[in-house]
């Protein structure tokens, strides 16, 4: 049974399907916002299969074992982190004290995958992209972690299920700590390297940054890594700020019945898609920032407000 959980549902296979759907959803929303028709539903699947079937070129001066394994590590880390975010119930069987920290840690690995790949790529765009990945990491990672810390302080637990239970009893954290919610969304945009924070692989400046030289299978894995990370990030934020499987009134009505997991599951998927929708709107509406502007912006408009939010929680909590 655990093997089924890990590999098929809600594990790796489901994650892939959901990630591809989310990618389609994202591209469709952006295309509609740009007054275009957008791709058909099977597009991300076709892209992935095509990339997997294409010739895999490794530049002759690259470190072969390294570049072959590193993208796999990235995907594996994201897939592992997915096990700890509750998909349909707040009593998640993989849950343990501190799982929030583990998820946060696993979600930083894709950035390091890019750093390594850029480092081992002979392309100058790769090296510039690597520098930008690292610089950007300092910009978004601290506020993102702090934004998830705020609800954890309020619920006094590092366990995602405890946060869910807290939201069942009170309000969703998006209402209790709205600043933290917004900062978390912004941090997620930075983590996923999307507009306006797509600086490490800004197409018109440095082509694809660290990914420029990688073709076929490796590029497919990198793309999958990003789309799965999108889903994990969206589900994580849905769980921490939007109550995860919890729906007001409905959850209480169906509690204990056989449809309860299904309702919870649908709630999580819809909330995650809502987060993806927000990301798409941000992507369509904004311009890419420059790396120095991005770091400054993150410090003033993310780190500073989130510290105030945490201060507020600590003061209110101690009263």
């Amino acid at each position: 049974m655990p093997l089924f959980y890990v590999l098929i549902f809600p594990g790796f296979l489901f994650l892939l399907a959901f990630a591809l759907f989310a990618e389609y959803f994202d591209r469709k929303v952006v295309a509609r916002l740009q007054n275009r028709q957008g791709p058909p539903w099977y597009q991300p699947l076709a892209d992935t299969i095509k990339l997997l079937s294409k010739e895999d070129i490794i530049t002759h001066d690259a470190d072969k074992p390294m570049v072959n394994t590193v993208p796999l590590f990235g995907l594996a880390a994201v897939a592992a982190s997915f096990l700890y975010v509750p998909m349909w119930t707040k009593d998640w069987h993989f849950s343990f004290q501190g799982d929030l920290i583990v998820v946060l840690y696993l979600l930083t690995i894709p950035a390091f995958v890019l750093v390594l790949l850029g480092w081992y790529s002979p392309n100058p765009f790769g090296s510039i992209g690597t520098g930008r990945v690292v610089t950007q990491l300092f910009g978004y990672e601290v506020p993102f972690a702090l934004a998830l810390l705020a609800p954890a302080i309020a619920a006094q637990s590092w366990r995602i299920t405890d946060l869910l239970a807290y939201q069942d009893d009170h309000y969703w954290f998006a209402l209790i700590t709205p600043i933290a919610f917004l900062v978390a969304i912004a941090g997620l945009v930075g983590k996923l390297e999307r507009v306006p924070f797509d600086i490490p692989h800004a197409e018109t400046e440095i082509v694809e940054g660290p990914m420029t030289e990688y073709t076929g299978r490796k590029y497919a894995l990198l793309k999958l890594m990003f789309s799965t990370e999108t889903v994990v990030g969206a589900v994580l934020i849905a769980a921490i700020f939007l109550g995860g499987p919890h729906l007001p009134w409905v959850t209480k009505a169906v509690a204990g019945t056989a449809v309860a997991p299904l309702v919870g599951f649908l709630a999580v998927v819809l909330k995650a898609l809502f987060i993806v929708f927000l990301l798409s709107v941000i992507k369509a509406a904004l311009t890419r920032l420059r790396i120095d502007q991005m770091v400054r912006w993150c410090l003033t408009w993310l780190t500073f407000p989130i510290l105030i939010q945490i201060l507020y929680i600590v003061i209110v909590g101690s009263m």
């Binding site: 740009q34 007054n35 275009r36």
Partner: peptide, 13 residues
Amino acid sequence: AAHEVGFDTLFMY
């Protein structure tokens, strides 16, 4: 110009 700074929506419009 909009495309150069990553503002694809304006580009398309």
